[in-house]
């Protein structure tokens, strides 16, 4: 059985701010943001208990939250490494050579897509279109930064930087 978790008061306030943007009987509209906030608070991933907590907070059937959380690539339902690398493997990126980027990343990190390095530093994910097709091939770091028109060299530079930040 999963243990119940609670949503931190500050996070609740953040969710409430989003709730205000929608009609009061449309709390479901805030589910994407709520999931984002709670995932951030929890070190980048969501457990079943978190999903339940969000469902209860938004007064939604639990399945409604599971549906959203499992649909979008940006939610992780298993623990992730400190840095999360989402490489787009959808059509535009595929046509522009994302395979090369993926294999470069895999080689350099020593893991396959969907895995986390044993030191817990990196998680590598293949994701669907992130709406940056003009800059294909592309990847996203930690749900925040987009990096476009990737080459193996560019990837190395980004990873070097992450490496350095990690040492700090």
């Amino acid at each position: 059985m999963t243990e119940a978790v609670t949503i931190a008061p500050e996070t609740q306030a953040e969710i409430d701010r989003w709730l205000k943007k929608y009609p009061t009987d449309r709390k479901q509209s805030a589910v994407l943001q709520a999931l984002m906030f709670v995932q951030r608070d929890n070190g980048g991933w969501l457990s079943e208990a978190h999903l339940n907590a969000i469902a209860d907070y938004l007064e939604l059937p639990r399945i409604a939250v599971y549906e959203v959380a499992t649909f979008y690539d940006m939610y992780d339902l298993k623990p992730v490494g400190k840095n999360k690398i989402d490489v787009c493997t959808n059509i535009s990126c595929k046509l522009c050579g994302c395979d090369k980027i993926v294999s470069h990343l895999e080689k350099r990190l020593g893991i396959k897509i969907g895995e986390t390095t044993s030191d817990g530093r990196y998680t590598l994910k293949g994701v669907e279109c992130l709406a940056a097709c003009v800059g294909a091939p592309m990847m996203q770091i930690n749900d925040l930064e987009y990096h476009e028109k990737l080459t193996p060299e560019k990837v190395d530079a980004i990873l070097d930087r992450l490496e350095k930040e990690g040492d700090k």
């Binding site: 639990r62 399945i63 409604a64 599971y66 499992t70 649909f71």
Partner: peptide, 19 residues
């Protein structure tokens, strides 16, 4: 009664109660 739902996406989508 929202018991069943569709979770996952694309080829991975499935109908189930998730838990």
């Amino acid at each position: 009664f929202r018991e069943l739902g569709m979770t996952g996406r694309g080829e991975k989508s499935r109908i189930g109660t998730y838990v």
